[in-house]
Nucleic acid binder design. Structure first.
Lengths: 191, 191
DNA sequence: GTCTATATTCCGATAGAC
DNA sequence: GTCTATCGGAATATAGAC
């Protein structure tokens, strides 16, 4: 099936976010899908190839969000992004940035470059959304939009990591504080 | 040597923060130290035992900081903590929280518990320092000190992760913004 | 595209001598 | 405490049949 390829990518994405890139194996992919090790290698000759495909899929998702949501007020765009992370927190999955950047030094090109692209693309989106929201008077913050975006992304990324250890409620406590600081009109409960 | 044990712990700490717990091997430890695989196993029968020892050492370092710095103003305690992270950023090493929480699901007890202790201990310290600093009128922020501490830790942790991908200067940009938000009297350049 | 079968390498871990 | 030697297993990856 051509669909097998997509199933592999989806499962790899989940495994990376549950246990980390270096902690899952080809059998973690093949067994649940009822196929063999070698069938996975047919689609993705090396593990790095599979990693690249997972990151590419994320890049496409982000591009899709920007296309779909670009017309919304900046804080509404942020709301959608926070919503994605909120769902992850409930599943106890971390995000690809939080999973792949710690392992960055174990990767080679071109996977490293792909991880960099992904982070820059998310940063670009959040920077744009925050800048727009401030212009619209819907959010308020000091400093450059890019620096604020780094801190917002930081909170989203870390809240998933810390929620694992400190408890699920950590996500809401952290994000509600961020939203209060930004003067947002909504909170996690409104998502 | 009784010193060998400490050298192993120190090297393991560095490897965990450079490449991640699941990406280093016993030979990464034994070769640089000029000993054999089995000598490492003598000191730490399993890899999880070694992980626990690394986290225990970190717990002692944090306890030491709290003992030594407890009398200082809250923002001065924060300055010392930020200084530790600043040095890591220059070495392109992440922190143990940023390295071990993504791998948390691959650990078993008692390593999981140790990682939890470590995060809670850091959180307790930062909460105390921020609360004290606000009472002293040396920092200002909204909300509970614990929630603010979560965001400060988040910024420190994430800045090391993102610096790898976006460049070393990311640390300074993020932390200076955090310090401005807190109304701190100092910046990264003052460290 | 998926299979069987296997090559290769590496890893964590242990036994027993010194 | 460290060594030599080795075990058992798992991991990534490939060759060739179907």
């Amino acid at each position: 099936m051509a669909e097998t390829r997509e199933q592999i990518i989806g499962l790899a994405d989940e495994l990376i976010r549950e246990r980390g890139f270096n902690a899952f194996s080809y059998s973690d992919i093949s067994e649940p899908l009822g196929i063999r090790n070698s069938a996975v290698h047919y689609h993705f000759p090396t593990k790095a190839d599979l990693g690249e495909a997972v990151v590419d899929a994320e890049l496409e998702r982000v591009a899709g969000f920007r296309r779909e949501l670009g017309g919304l007020p900046g804080d509404e765009q942020l709301k959608q992004l926070v919503s994605v992370f909120y769902k992850s927190s409930k599943l106890r999955l971390i995000c690809l940035m939080g999973s792949l950047t710690p392992d960055y030094n174990t990767f080679e090109e071109p996977l490293r470059g792909k991880v960099g692209e992904m982070c820059k693309e998310v940063l670009s989106w959040v920077t744009e959304a925050l800048g727009k929201a401030r212009e619209e008077g819907r959010l308020r913050f000091e400093g450059e939009a890019r620096d604020r975006a780094l801190l917002v992304i930081s909170s989203l990324l870390s809240s998933l990591l810390l929620s694992r250890v400190l408890g699920k409620e950590t996500f809401q406590r952290m994000l509600d504080q961020v939203l209060q600081d930004l003067g947002a009109a909504w909170r996690i409960k409104d998502i």
